[in-house]
Design a protein around this nucleic acid. Structure first.
Length: 479
DNA sequence: CGGTGGGACGATAGCGTCCCACCGGTGCTCTATT
């Protein structure tokens, strides 16, 4: 085992840093002494170093499992920029002969990136069995617990994969996980609690002010949103639970303010999505009206506020979404807008995934086609292919329904709190309360009128709205 | 799942009832042919 001095030397040699950030040293030490590790560390805390430094100090390759191609691409680019050439990204875009070539190149790779879906491919598994693997890293590990059972079932095969790869040393990375989710991640990877070292830092973001505004109806909610985004300075994200509304509201905000606004959701072309993300990063856009598709991998330091126009379906997701504000450590705000009836949409979204027992029985009896199980019948097919019986399946779906229901009730409880919101969230994540200033609207109800943040108008020289038609008419000398 | 909006129909003038279609988020894959 190397001592700390050697670790600092390695840190300097491979990354040019002289200090570890909070949680990094503990994680790397645990791994290098052969302990499987679950690292729950805030985003922006330098998570890639947690597998990259061990990769350089261990003999074999590191396999990184990632939920999004864009995240993998990002990591690959960074490694390349750092001068590392032994990087291989296995992705479905390789075709025919290129595939075989990629698999043959595995032996020369230090860093291998792949999606869970690809890692379910027998040819890929065989190729991985043939090389020396020193570390299995699962990035955004909460996806195993949440996306896996919901719509990406191949996540549930990672447990099997780990066995097939002869149980390599394993690193699980995530930014937010409740005690329940942490337990579930381990169970789904097939690790017992005593086989894992947990390195965990608080999810609390002291510079993030928490607020809820209850409005009587949708018109009032729009007005409240407009007031918020024209007052709060800097860049912001507004989350919606529907693509159509995200698009419509982006247009409405453009018409009713001088702000630069764009929509973002998974129904847009990859090119448009990329462009919006880039423009937001480059300060060419002030607001993004987005669905939950926007966020993972967005590493913009100076987002000043996150507004939820609709309820999130659970607080895990909420904390991740608001955690995108204030990465630079400066005062930022998270506001949830609510009007009666809003919980309907959230409830519907969670329930489509998990058909009721009654519906299930009708499908089983052949009275309804498999497709009647919803958009999600692919999930159903997956379970069937993996020899699950109807009874087991019904049970899995029933449990997930109950869990989703409970999670939404916690969101509703958060909305209607009369006690500190931060305390509620920290309690949800299994942490104890923290006393701090600029905490939430319960302690500081005047936050918007006695502003917590400088007003947008005071910060930005208000750009005049451009009326192209008028300018054009002037130019052409038309009346 | 469960709510909403529109069209058809019926019975007898201004409208009630029923039914059906539609909607609502997150992403991977290498499927085939022109």
């Amino acid at each position: 085992m190397m001592d700390e001095t050697q670790l600092y030397n390695a840190l300097n040699k491979y990354f040019g840093f002289t200090k570890f950030r909070d949680g990094q040293l503990a994680t790397v030490k645990a791994l290098l002494t052969g302990h499987n590790t679950l690292a729950v560390l805030p985003t922006g805390g330098g998570k890639s170093l947690l597998y990259q430094l061990p990769a350089y100090l261990l003999p074999g390759a590191v396999l990184v499992v990632s939920p999004l191609i864009s995240l993998m691409q990002d990591q690959v680019d960074r490694l390349h920029r750092n001068g590392e050439k032994r990087v291989l990204m296995l992705s479905g875009r390789g075709q025919g002969p290129a595939w075989q070539l990629q698999l043959r190149r595995l032996a020369g790779a230090k860093f291998i990136f792949a999606s869970p879906e690809l890692l379910a491919n027998p040819a890929v598994i065989r190729a991985l069995q043939a090389i020396r693997l020193s570390l299995l890293t699962i990035d955004e590990a909460h996806c195993i617990s949440q996306w896996g059972p919901d719509f990406r079932p191949e996540y549930l095969l990672l447990k099997q994969l780990r066995q097939q790869l002869d149980t390599p040393l394993t690193l699980l990375l995530t930014a937010t996980a409740t005690p329940r989710v942490r337990q579930d991640i381990l169970a789904k990877v097939g690790l017992a609690a005593n086989e894992v070292t947990v390195v965990r830092r608080s999810v609390n973001r002291p510079n993030l002010f928490l607020a809820v505004q209850e409005l009587a109806n949708d018109g009032d909610k729009r007005a409240a949103l407009l007031k918020l985004v024209t007052r709060l300075p800097g860049a912001g994200i507004i989350y919606f639970a529907s693509r159509r509304l995200a698009t419509d509201m982006a247009e409405w905000l453009r018409e009713n303010s001088s702000l630069k606004v764009a929509a973002y959701h998974a129904g847009m072309s990859p090119a448009d999505r990329f462009r919006v993300q880039q423009q937001f990063m480059d300060e060419q856009l002030q607001l993004v009206c987005a669905t939950s598709a926007f966020g993972m991998g967005i590493d913009k330091a100076n987002i000043r506020f996150v507004v939820h126009y609709h309820l999130p379906t659970n607080l895990e997701g909420y904390v991740q979404e608001i955690g995108r504000a204030g990465r630079d450590g400066k005062q930022s705000v998270a506001v949830m807008l609510y009007c009666p009836g809003d919980e309907q949409l959230a409830r519907q979204l969670t329930q489509v995934d998990f058909p009721s027992a009654e519906r299930f029985n009708r499908v089983q009896a052949g009275k309804l086609p498999v497709q009647a199980l919803g958009e999600n019948y692919e999930l159903f097919d997956f379970y069937r292919q993996h020899h699950y019986q109807y009874a087991q399946l019904k049970n899995i779906f029933k449990q997930r329904r109950r869990q989703a229901d409970w999670q939404l009730r916690q969101v509703q409880a958060y909305l209607t709190l009369t006690t500190c919101r931060r305390r509620f969230i920290l309690d949800y994540f299994g942490e104890s309360a923290i006393e701090q200033t600029h905490c939430c609207d319960i302690d500081e109800p005047t936050w918007l009128t006695a502003p917590l943040l400088p007003l947008r108008q005071a910060v930005e020289a208000a750009p005049r709205p451009v009326h192209w038609d008028k300018q054009l008419r002037n130019l052409l000398n038309l009346a």
